Amino acid sequence: MNFHTRKWIKPEDLNPNGTLFGGRLLEWIDEEAALYAIIQLENSRTVTKYMSEINFRSSAKEGDIIEIGIKPTKFGNSSLTLACEVRNKMTREVIITVDSIIMVSLGDDGKPVAHGKTEIEYVKNRLQDK
């Protein structure tokens, strides 16, 4: 699991219970998955098709720092399937897991298009090839 993004929990991120609002966390997860897939598939027209059951295991409170981890699990013809884990850096507890997020590469017409990728590529390796 690669943890690229950290978020600092601020008052506007809280629910009426004073803990991290689940909807805000899902927004961050969706954005992180999109960014990861766009970079991997080299297509800015990559969208979320599916998000599996989510499992809230703990929470975070104001002032906590969380980190979002993404791991690719499968390359399809036009899709990339990811897993996600979010953990609280302050308590070291896992906050949420998502087993499957399917991102789909779209063409100019808005329909799925083959991306031709079969494995993870790192930007530093792409730059060396050019």
Score class of each variant (00 low, 15 high):
Arg126Met: 08
Lys130Asn: 01
Glu42Met: 00
Ile29Met: 13
Arg45Thr: 05
Arg24Trp: 15
Ser79Ile: 05
Ala37Phe: 09
Leu14Gly: 07
Glu121Asp: 04
Asn88Lys: 13
Asp108Gln: 11
Glu67Pro: 07
Leu26Gly: 04
Ala114His: 05
Tyr50Glu: 11
Ile39Pro: 00
Gln40Arg: 10
Lys71Ala: 12
Glu93Ala: 12
Ile29Asn: 03
Met51Phe: 07
Leu25Tyr: 12
Lys61Ser: 12
Pro11Asn: 06
Glu67Asn: 14
Thr46Gln: 02
Thr97Tyr: 06
Ile70Cys: 08
Glu27Phe: 10
Ala60Ile: 08
Gly23Lys: 09
Pro112Ala: 04
Ile66Phe: 10
Gly107Pro: 03
Ile54Cys: 10
Asn15Val: 08
Phe56Glu: 03
Asp129Lys: 15
Lys117Met: 01
His4Asn: 15
Ile65Lys: 09
Arg6Ile: 09
Gly69Ser: 04
Val86Cys: 13
Thr48Ile: 05
Pro72Ser: 14
His4Asp: 15
Ser52Asn: 06
Ser100Cys: 09
Gly110Ile: 02
Thr118Ser: 01
Phe75Gln: 06
Glu32Lys: 04
Trp28Gly: 02
Ala114Val: 02
Ser52Pro: 04
Gly76Gln: 03
Cys84Ala: 15
Arg24Glu: 09
Gly63Arg: 01
Arg6Thr: 14
Asn43Gly: 07
Leu20Gln: 08
Pro112Leu: 01
Lys49Arg: 14
Asp108His: 04
Glu93Ser: 13
Ala114Met: 03
Trp8Tyr: 14
Leu20Asn: 06
Asn43Lys: 01
Met1Gln: 14
Gly76Cys: 02
Thr19Glu: 14
Gly110Asp: 04
Asn43Trp: 06
Glu27Leu: 12
Glu32Ile: 10
Phe75Asp: 00
Arg92Lys: 15
Trp8Ile: 12
Ala34Trp: 05
Glu32Asn: 14
Val98Glu: 11
Ile96Phe: 12
Phe21Ala: 08
Asp108Asn: 11
Arg126Leu: 11
Lys74Asn: 06
Leu80Ser: 04
Asn77Gln: 00
Asp13Val: 05
Lys71Asn: 12
Cys84Phe: 08
